[in-house]
Nucleic acid binder design. Structure first.
Lengths: 165, 165
DNA sequence: CGGATCTCAGATCAACTGAGATAA
DNA sequence: CTTATCTCAGTTCATCTGAGATCC
C-alpha cells in the first residue's frame, strides 16, 4: 500500500515540477513574444539547422502535427524558414532565419538566472542523478505498451546533445 | 560550461519525462472518456470532497480559471456537482457525483499496471529520492521570482496527501 | 506496391487575461 | 473599503485525428 501510493506521489510530483518550470519559463519568455514550447524548437534548430519537421519532432519529443502547427506560427513571426529539401522532395528543410538566430542568442544570454534557480537546489552530482532518473521514466513510458511506436526512445535521443526550455 | 549545460539538460529531461507520462496516461484514460488533467481533479476530489474551486486549484497546482473551465466540462459529464458553499456564500462546494466516484474507483483499480511501469525503473528509495528532487524543483520554481505569488508552495502542499495522474 | 513526409481541416483541451458581480 | 471567490467572454496555444497529396 505504501508502494502503490508512491507511484501516485511520483506522478504528481513530476507533474507539479514540470508545470511550475513551464510557468516560470513562459513568464520569462513573455517579453520575447515566444512561448516556452516554441523556444524548445528554437533550441533544437540552434543545435542543428536545416533538418526536417520529422527530425524536429523526434528531437523535441513531440508529435509531427503539433510541430508543424508550431512551425507555422514561428514562420509567421519570421523566426524560421521552410524550404524544399534537397534530396527528399517530400520533406521540408527547416532553418532559422537571421531573426530566429538573434532571438535565440538573446534568450540564451538572458536565461541564465532562471537556469540557476532551477539548478540551485542541487549539487552537480544530484543534477546528474536526477537527469538519469528522468530519462529512465521517459524510457519506461515510451518504449512500452500503448501507442508507443511513433515515439522516440531516450536511447536514440541521447545521441544528440540536448537543448531546452 | 558543463555547469550551464546541465540546467539545459535537466529542463529538457523534465519536459520529456512529463510529456511521455502525460501521453501514456492520456492514452490509458481514453476509453474512460476523461483527460489526464481532469483525472487529476477527480483524484483531488476523491481525497477530499466538498472543497471550493480555489482549494482545488491549490491542490492541483493549477490556475483557478483553468480549474473552473475543467469543472464545467466535468459537470456536463455529470462527474461533479457544484453547490453553494454552506458558510461562504461566494464560494461553491464541489463534490463528486455518484458517477464521478464510480469512475474514479474504476480507474484507480485499473491504473495499477501503468503505475507499475512508471515505478519499475526504481528501487523504493530511488523513488523517494526522485520525489524529493522534484519537490525541490517545484519549490524553487514557485516561491521565487516572476509572477509566483498566486502559486502554491510545495511546503503547503506537503501537508495534504497527494494524488495523481 | 508499401511506407514516409508533409498539408490541411477540424476538434478538443488547457491555460490564461481582464472585466465584473457578489459577498466576507 | 478591501479582499476573496466565482462567472463570463474571449484569446492563444498545444495536441491530436483523419484524410489526402506527393514522393521514395
Amino acid at each position: 500500500m505504501g508502494h502503490m501510493q508512491s507511484a501516485h506521489e511520483l506522478a504528481f510530483a513530476l507533474r507539479t515540477a514540470y508545470l511550475s518550470m513551464h510557468r516560470q519559463t513562459s513568464a520569462f519568455l513573455l517579453p520575447f513574444r515566444i512561448t516556452a514550447d516554441q523556444f524548445v524548437l528554437l533550441c533544437v534548430l540552434a543545435q542543428r539547422d536545416g533538418i526536417t519537421q520529422q527530425e524536429i519532432s523526434t528531437r523535441a519529443a513531440s508529435d509531427p502535427n503539433t510541430v508543424r502547427a508550431m512551425l507555422v506560427l514561428m514562420q509567421k513571426k519570421e523566426l524560421v524558414a521552410r524550404t524544399p529539401h534537397q534530396t527528399d522532395r517530400r520533406a521540408l528543410a527547416v532553418t532559422l532565419t537571421k531573426k530566429g538566430r538573434m532571438l535565440y542568442a538573446e534568450i540564451f544570454k538572458q536565461i541564465q538566472p532562471l537556469h540557476d534557480v532551477l539548478q540551485a537546489p542541487f549539487l552537480p552530482e544530484d543534477t546528474q542523478a536526477l537527469i538519469s532518473y528522468l530519462d529512465r521514466i521517459s524510457e519506461a513510458m515510451t518504449s512500452r505498451s500503448g501507442q508507443a511506436d511513433r515515439q522516440n526512445s531516450v536511447s536514440e535521443r541521447k545521441l544528440h546533445k540536448r537543448c531546452q526550455v
